[in-house]
């Protein structure tokens, strides 16, 4: 397992370095280049690593709590609730600072995630496919509400630009809140055993003396806060929280104490990779990372579903 970690770390470093070198103006050894590096390139690469790491971690926690491998914050309404928070701030307090927008978005995603997970706990018939279906329906309803409100308030375009996963606007001073998300991911590592145990279900957890409701609530808060922070800072990145945990699960299993570092590294690597593609495919113009991630992520996901029959259950 350490072998995998080392390998993934090397990959992240190589990708991060490449990410620094890519851009519409080339770097040389002068003051302008240094400014470019410090103001734009390094913040962008850092933001990619921070959000990739924490979104992958949020995905794996969500999967433990829902006890289902096919859910992640973008398919369970969490992202939509965070977006709704943003939208309400745009309508009522457009002048508020990013910090307050963040606060409201996080609060809303806590509420939305809680509703989803409590809904799951009420459903006794839980087939593997029912859970993601419920999530997608729930997210769909929320997206419709958002669209309706945004349409009526003529904010459709601003909200769409805001939540579309995109790192091209990241500059120094505009991404640092993402460190919060990484802090939350580190916190998740401290309760990794408890989260794994909660993933074995309520009865097994109670039998082993775990405070199930407390662990569940902590996990829920971690997922919702990480999602809220990254939606506000860099928008929605689909599939990340879905494919990374599933890939890691194939390699080292689901004991989070063991797999969480690899999940974090893979998350960073995949986001860096997709962002590089997004910057190169139509050079010198960019396409949003969410688009690239949608294509690559869904490809990986289909492969995992179809290529590993034994794994799927």
């Amino acid at each position: 397992m350490y072998k995998f970690n080392l390998w993934a770390l090397t990959l992240v470093l190589v990708l991060a370095f490449s990410s620094l070198l890519i851009g519409s103006s080339s770097l040389s050894m002068d003051a302008d280049s240094l400014d470019l590096l410090l103001i734009s390139r390094i913040p962008r690469t850092a933001a990619l690593i921070l959000s990739g790491t924490s979104l992958a971690v949020a995905g794996v926690i969500m999967q433990q709590l829902a006890r289902n491998k096919f859910v992640e914050p973008t398919t369970t309404g969490t992202v939509e609730w965070a977006t709704l928070g943003m939208l309400l701030m745009l309508i009522f307090f457009p002048q508020a600072s990013v910090f307050y927008k963040l606060l409201v978005a996080c609060l809303m995603s806590v509420v939305g995630t809680a509703i989803f997970l409590l809904m799951l706990r009420k459903i006794s018939l839980r087939s593997d496919f029912l859970v993601p279906l419920i999530g997608i329906m729930y997210a769909g309803v929320m997206a419709a509400i958002i669209t309706f409100i945004a349409y009526r308030t003529e904010l459709l375009q601003s909200i769409w630009i805001w939540v579309q996963g995109d790192f091209s606007m990241i500059l120094r001073g505009r991404y640092e809140l993402l460190w919060l998300a990484v802090g939350l991911s580190v916190l998740a590592y401290f309760i990794a055993d408890k989260l794994t145990l909660a993933g074995l279900g309520k009865q097994v957890s109670i039998n082993l003396g775990l405070n199930y409701n407390l662990t569940f609530t902590l996990g829920l808060l971690l997922v919702a806060l990480i999602t809220g922070v990254s939606v506000v800072n860099c928008g929605v990145i689909p599939f990340l929280g879905l494919v990374v945990p599933n890939m890691v699960s194939l390699l080292v299993g689901d004991n989070l104490r063991r797999s969480l570092p690899l999940v974090a590294l893979f998350g960073a690597a995949l986001v860096l990779f997709c962002d590089i593609i997004a910057r190169l495919i139509n050079y010198p113009y960019e396409i949003p990372i969410a688009t690239v991630m949608g294509v690559i992520g869904s490809g990986i996901f289909l492969y995992l579903l179809l290529g590993n029959r034994r794994y799927a259950h």
Partner: peptide, 24 residues
């Protein structure tokens, strides 16, 4: 009914049996 979706090894699972003593 022990419907478990997590990929844990037998050793991991048995180790969780000791969780009340070692807490991880």
């Amino acid at each position: 009914e022990n419907h478990i979706v997590a990929r844990l090894t037998v050793e991991d699972l048995v180790c969780f049996g000791r969780f009340p003593y070692h807490q991880g």
